[in-house]
């Protein structure tokens, strides 16, 4: 009589039954053996957390009596939130740097959606589906080459993106303003556009946008070197600056209405005069 081949499900059930039996017969008691290791590790975790808190306090506020001082691992706090100053460079906490950097790779508007939602959603779906895609019983890493290569690639890309995000050059208003005269020369900007150019350099636009090679290139923001060639019009530019997402649904650009209409008009004139290298 031919032997029936067990189905994959029967094999798995048998394997798990064997596991239960082995653990019952040859296993160790959770307390005190495994629990001892858990306790040691937990104490290490708490010690590291306390250590970081001490390092933070004693190198920021400690010697300077000023919580704004950077210290070794960062200040206690930044200056108070001020919706009026837009020159602040937005930065998430370090574990979001990989996302933050991903957004430099994809450009608004065609593909920024891929960076913000597309890649993370796909990653999440892959994670949730993993146990159903990889249904082999084999657990030894040496026999799971595909899984191991995928893991190494994932870790490497996360590490590189996080590193790039951490070291990304920030466009500081004090440095960007020095480029304004060269902008005027290169783009042959009229005198009326100069106040707008100075605002552009200091109001935080360059945290995300680039202009003649200066600026942050964040969040998929487009280069504005020749934005004027699109002839969008002064009133459109003002409306867009006041509320970007009202004009471009879904735009991640913050609102700049707090600058006031007069300054927004200056910015708009500068943008409309920017026709690229002349």
């Amino acid at each position: 009589m031919a032997e029936e081949k067990p189905t994959p499900l029967e094999l798995r059930r048998a394997g798990f039954a064997r596991y239960k039996k082995d653990v019952k017969e040859r296993g160790k008691s959770f307390y005190p053996f495994a629990m001892f290791e858990d306790t040691v590790m937990s104490l290490v975790v708490v010690a590291v957390i306390v250590g970081l808190a001490v390092l933070w306090k004693w190198t920021s506020y400690g010697p300077h009596h000023d919580g704004l001082h950077k210290g070794v691992i960062g200040p206690e706090y930044a200056p108070p939130a001020d919706p009026g100053t837009v020159s602040f460079v937005p930065r998430p906490d370090w574990y979001f740097y990989f996302l933050f950097y991903l957004l430099r790779i994809f450009k608004w508007p065609e593909s920024v959606f891929l960076g913000t939602i597309g890649v993370p959603t796909i990653a999440l779906i892959l994670l949730l589906a993993l146990p159903f895609m990889d249904v082999r019983l084999e657990r030894r890493p040496s026999r799971r080459p595909v899984a191991m290569v995928a893991a190494v690639l994932t870790i490497m890309s996360m590490a590189i993106l996080t590193w790039k995000g951490a070291t990304a050059k920030e466009a500081l208003a004090s440095e960007v303003i020095a480029d304004v005269p060269s902008w005027v020369k290169t783009e042959k900007l009229p005198a009326a556009a100069v106040p707008g150019a100075k605002l552009f350099a200091t109001a935080g636009c360059t945290a995300c946008h680039t202009y003649l090679g200066t600026g942050g290139s964040n969040l998929g923001a487009p280069d504005l070197t020749n934005i004027g060639t699109r002839n969008l019009g002064i009133s459109f530019q003002i409306r867009h600056l006041e509320c970007p997402s009202c004009v471009n649904p879904g735009s991640p650009m913050p609102k700049f209405a707090s600058l006031g209409t007069a300054r927004l008009r200056q910015l708009a004139i500068f943008l409309e005069s920017s026709k690229g290298k002349q």
Binding site: P80, P83, P90, P254
Partner: peptide, 14 residues
């Protein structure tokens, strides 16, 4: 603070 505020403005917009 400024870090908190601007990171959240952009985060929410994203």
């Amino acid at each position: 603070d400024q870090t908190a505020y601007w990171a959240s403005v952009v985060g929410i917009n994203l």
